[in-house]
């Protein structure tokens, strides 16, 4: 077990290193003026430019720049933003934005997983029934909808026509709250739109995967043994089938974190939710490269860490992997 974890840990670090390298060079291969990475597209006087180039080490050979970059990274210096003049990238990312994105992402993935797993199990059990056909088609439909369009529809229906949810932002601007609960209520009210959008967009995928996994398990011999023992259907399904079928899901969840960042970007943009996803979009539009680089690194770390945790979880859950 320990060897397994060490191996996985080293592999994770290796991938992280590669990610850092990629991050650095990705922004250096841009055509045109190399100072764009640091100074942006804003017009600056040539003398100022020269000073900045020297300050940021852009006149040094590339590998020196890389070392400088890594050095900065290790102390948490992610550079300075263009659009938010003077604010460090780290401050922008590790503030409200990260919190908002995690709350939104975390809750929607949790709910989507839960519903997907349970409904997937039931649908697999009642294969070919109306329930199964309905849920499969529902999943395929929501899976086929572009996330941003789903968001737009929800805004249209619930925001415009039914006027029941706010269509932008995390909180109502200018409102004062008398206590934490009022604040939370307003916050959650604003979160409803993006939450429903994200959850719906993920649920189909989890459902289909779980259903496939359970159907796979049904072909195993131990399912026949369980039935031969005269166990109730519910026991067979949830005790024997589900346990085995959820194992592959664990690895899947780690990979899903990756998609969460993407889905969140779309949703946050459509709903103007003040999170990391929206930040990506804003930074791209404003060509704020330091911010983009910073987000890249942060996302890489989060995803690699999530994968590593999933490896641990899998090793703990599957008794066959104890060595």
């Amino acid at each position: 077990m320990r060897d397994y974890l060490v191996k996985r840990g080293l592999s994770a670090l290796g991938t992280l290193a590669l990610a850092v390298v990629l991050n650095f060079f990705l922004f250096r291969i841009m055509p045109g003026d190399p100072t764009r990475t640091v100074v942006g597209d804003f017009r600056v006087a040539p003398e100022v430019r020269k000073v900045l180039i020297h300050q940021f080490g852009l006149d040094q050979p590339i590998w020196v720049q890389f070392l400088l970059y890594v050095q900065n990274l290790l102390v948490g210096n992610l550079g300075v933003s263009f659009q938010y003049r003077g604010t460090s990238v780290a401050a922008i990312i590790f503030g409200r934005r990260l919190f908002n994105t995690f709350i939104l992402m975390g809750s929607s993935i949790a709910v989507a997983l839960l519903i997907g797993i349970v409904i997937g199990t039931i649908a697999a059990w009642k294969r070919e029934s109306k329930f199964d056909v309905f849920t499969v088609i529902f999943s395929l439909v929501t899976y086929s909808m572009p996330v941003f369009w789903l968001g737009m529809l929800i805004i249209l229906v619930f925001g415009y026509y039914l006027n029941s949810i706010p269509i932008a932002g995390t909180i109502t601007v200018g409102l004062t709250y008398s206590n934490v609960f009022e604040y939370a209520a307003d916050y959650l009210h604003h979160m409803t739109g993006p939450f429903v959008t994200l959850t719906l967009s993920f649920i189909g995928y989890y459902f289909l995967i779980m259903r496939d996994s359970i159907l796979d398990v049904f072909t195993e011999d131990y399912m026949l043994t369980a039935k031969a023992k005269g166990l109730s259907n519910r026991k067979i399904l949830f005790r024997h089938a589900m346990r085995n079928a959820t194992l592959p899901m664990v690895s899947l969840i780690a990979v899903e974190v990756t998609y969460l960042f993407g889905g969140a970007t779309m949703t946050e943009t459509v709903f103007s939710w003040y999170g990391i996803g929206r930040l990506v979009y804003e930074a791209v539009v404003m060509a704020d490269y330091p911010v983009l680089q910073g987000i890249f690194v942060v996302m890489a770390v989060v995803v690699i860490a999530a994968n590593f945790l999933a490896d641990i979880a899998y090793a703990l859950l599957d008794p066959r992997i104890r060595y």
């Binding site: 991938t15 590669l18 990610a19 990629l22 990705l26 922004f27 291969i29 841009m30 990979v255 990756t258 998609y259 969460l260 960042f261 993407g262 889905g263 970007t265 779309m266 990506v280 979009y281 791209v284 060509a287 983009l292 987000i295 890249f296 996302m299 890489a300 995803v303 690699i304 994968n307």
Partner: peptide, 17 residues
Amino acid sequence: LFIIIPALPLMLIMASI
């Protein structure tokens, strides 16, 4: 590496470049 990196952000970053 490419599997791990979030797809859409990477796409956006590349598109911006």
